[in-house]
Design a binder for these strands. Structure first.
Length: 577
RNA sequence: GCCCUCGUAGCUCAGUGGAUAGAGCGUUGGUCUCCGAAGCCAUGUGCGCAGGUUCGAUUCCUGCCGAGGGCACCA
């Protein structure tokens, strides 16, 4: 249980009783909002519930607050008072804190709090870059954020399945095959690469690997002899079809390597082509038609997405009979529903935001979302601007400039990359300052947080402390009334509350913010005159032990938090100069 | 034309509708006989403009101004 949960239960119960006394009933899902106080002098937590209920209960906020305060006489609270227009400020007693802090290890505590939020079977799709080239910086951002959010979702008790959708079907793949074919042909003949082919040099690298490792069929294989007289158009067609799947495979493999280097794991790579092969794509089109959600126009089949708030209806089967990408995507998401997921969350690139209305409309047309607890959510990953010395970096590989996820990783340490990407809300444009990430590394927030963690371990070394279990529930008397200790301790106890919030709103940027604050509060504690553990060890061993336990809690929170962000928590820091 | 994101301190940005709006960088000045100075302390008259909803708006809604991105029977 978390402190906030304890208070919410008590305040909500009090509010219900007061409403009942006034012959009023609060909605079933009513729960009092519990906030943090701006400063400890106001208490530990605060609730504006009296002000929120003033209208519905037809009483003044202060009158309601007064009644709630009377109902909150409870051994868990040492002080409950009204402030301002009707805030109720709550100070927990040592007993109340002990009841919550009765864990001996932060990870056990996180697991024990799973009942405080709705835990669901979630499928989380992110990155899903086209298998037609190296991954770009937005993919790196989506990888960092998506991976961290899934770790948080898991940490608070959800079953999360991480999936990557591979667009290994359609025009783009055909173009990829054609690009390989032309690059192969170019080895024997001077021929220009068509404009609609992938221009990147990486195609040649992958081609050379394929030529070296795969068996090339006779009708595809080229030599100086065969190049003399042959049907180039026919050959291009065959060669494209041959190279396309091999190209996809090779590129996907490289993407997976990059993702691993980015400390991003997936449970599954889902092939779009497999949906087409099963007939699932056309089947879902038929399902939409059966439900009366489509119409025909010029031989094309059109999904009436305007019924669901879209700007215009969308083609799902072209007039030539081929399905559009949208229909495949609908089939893919219908497949997620069929697999039993209750929450479907996607991170998409900035060019896909127009797709949200039509896809969520299609899911609703198919019946998903009618049941309580079913949810489809799309988070748009906005673009990333790379800056160097304050100037935008031109995104052109041809000019030898910076562009890919791998380029980034080669230049910037992974811990810094991950931190920078999760530091800002995914839905906002991000300026990634390479100069700041590198040159000002000493002022880099990620190092500040890691440094705090390393410093705790330095204390452990100095104090000859061996890590073991602690019973923090009994130690609050050592922390109360010492502002640096108490602020640190109470802030650390918010950790699971924060993770629950992130699991609900996906705002991962709050985690680095919190960790930075933990590092700051720890540093304040560390510099406190009465907090010198080394001195206390000879004068008051029990107090020294209590402070070591506080340090251990801080270290556990920092380590757990950094780990959720895919960032290392070193026990010693070394400058690279 | 429509859609998305964003206008908060000199700069980069926090701030799930609440009590004196916060950090970092930069500036200036202090600070290592002391568990790590990647630290600490001091130093600041800022929510683009106009309405609306609300007991209460930086936060939600509408309009305007400004910045960036996106709008296929491509994927």
């Amino acid at each position: 249980m978390t402190l906030r949960y304890l208070i919410r239960q008590a305040v909500t119960a009090a509010a219900r009783r007061i409403a009942a006394d006034l012959n009023n009933t609060l909605p079933e899902d009513f729960a009092a909002r519990i906030d943090y106080t701006p400063a400890l002098k106001f208490g530990h937590y605060a609730t504006p519930v009296a002000m929120e209920l003033a209208k519905v209960l037809r009483q003044s906020p202060r009158a309601i607050a007064q009644k709630i305060v009377e109902h909150l006489v409870n051994e868990s609270f040492s002080k409950v008072e009204i402030a301002g227009a009707g805030f109720i400020n709550i100070t927990l007693s040592a007993k109340g804190i002990a009841a919550v802090a009765n864990f001996t290890n932060i990870k056990n505590w996180l697991n024990a709090n799973a009942d405080e939020i709705l835990t669901e079977k979630i499928i989380f799709e992110y990155v899903s870059a086209n298998p037609t080239g190296p991954m770009n910086i937005v993919s790196a951002r989506a990888a960092s954020v998506g991976d961290s959010i899934t770790r948080v979702l898991g940490a608070v008790g959800n079953a999360v399945f991480r999936e990557y959708y591979v667009n290994d079907y359609g025009n783009q793949v055909e173009k990829l095959g054609l690009s390989f074919a032309y690059r192969y042909l170019q080895k024997f003949k001077s021929v220009a690469l068509p404009d609609d082919c992938y221009q990147g040099e990486y195609i040649i690298e992958y081609l050379d690997k394929i030529l070296a490792n795969d068996k090339i069929p006779e009708n595809i294989f080229l030599s100086k002899a065969s190049i003399g007289a042959f049907d180039e158009a026919a050959w291009l067609k065959n060669a494209s079809a041959f190279f396309a799947p091999l190209g996809v495979r090779a590129i996907l493999k490289e993407q997976q390597k990059d993702l691993q280097a980015f400390r991003t794991e997936f449970d599954n790579f889902f092939s779009e082509a497999s949906l087409h092969a099963q007939g699932a794509v056309m089947a879902v089109g038929a399902a939409l038609a059966e439900r009366g959600k489509t119409r025909s126009e010029d031989g094309a089949q059109i999904f009436v997405s305007t019924t669901y708030g879209d700007d215009k209806d969308r083609v799902i089967v072209r007039s030539d009979g081929r399905p559009t990408y949208l229909l495949a995507d609908i089939a893919y998401h219908a497949d997620k529903v069929a697999r039993g997921f209750k929450k479907i969350i996607d991170i998409w690139g900035p060019d896909h935001h127009g797709y949200i209305a039509r896809l969520s409309g299609a899911l609703r047309a198919l019946g998903f979302g009618d049941a309580v607890g079913e949810e489809f959510k799309v988070i748009i990953a906005q673009q990333v601007n790379l800056l160097e010395n304050g100037e935008p970096v031109v995104m052109s590989k041809r000019l030898g400039k910076f562009q890919t996820m791998r380029d980034l990783l080669e230049k910037i340490p992974i811990d810094v990359c991950r931190w920078f990407f999760v530091q800002r809300a995914l839905s906002t444009h991000l300026d990634f300052d390479l100069t700041l990430a590198l040159d000002q590394s000493k002022k880099n927030p990620v190092y500040y947080v890691q440094y705090a963690h390393a410093r705790i371990h330095s204390i452990f070394r100095e104090a000859n402390y061996a890590e073991h279990e602690h019973h923090w529930a009994d130690l609050y008397p050592y922390y109360a009334a010492h502002s640096e200790r108490e602020e640190l301790y109470l802030f650390l106890l918010r950790f699971p509350e924060l993770l629950q919030d992130i699991a609900r709103n996906y705002e991962i940027q709050r985690l680095p913010e919190y960790l930075y604050q933990v590092a700051t509060l720890f540093t304040h504690f560390y510099h406190g005159k009465n907090n010198r553990i080394k001195d206390l060890q000879s004068t008051n061993a029990a107090e020294a032990a209590a402070l070591l336990a506080l340090c251990a809690l801080a270290a556990q929170v920092l380590e757990a938090g950094l780990s959720l962000l895919g960032i290392s928590a070193p026990q010693e820091m070394h400058r690279n100069e």
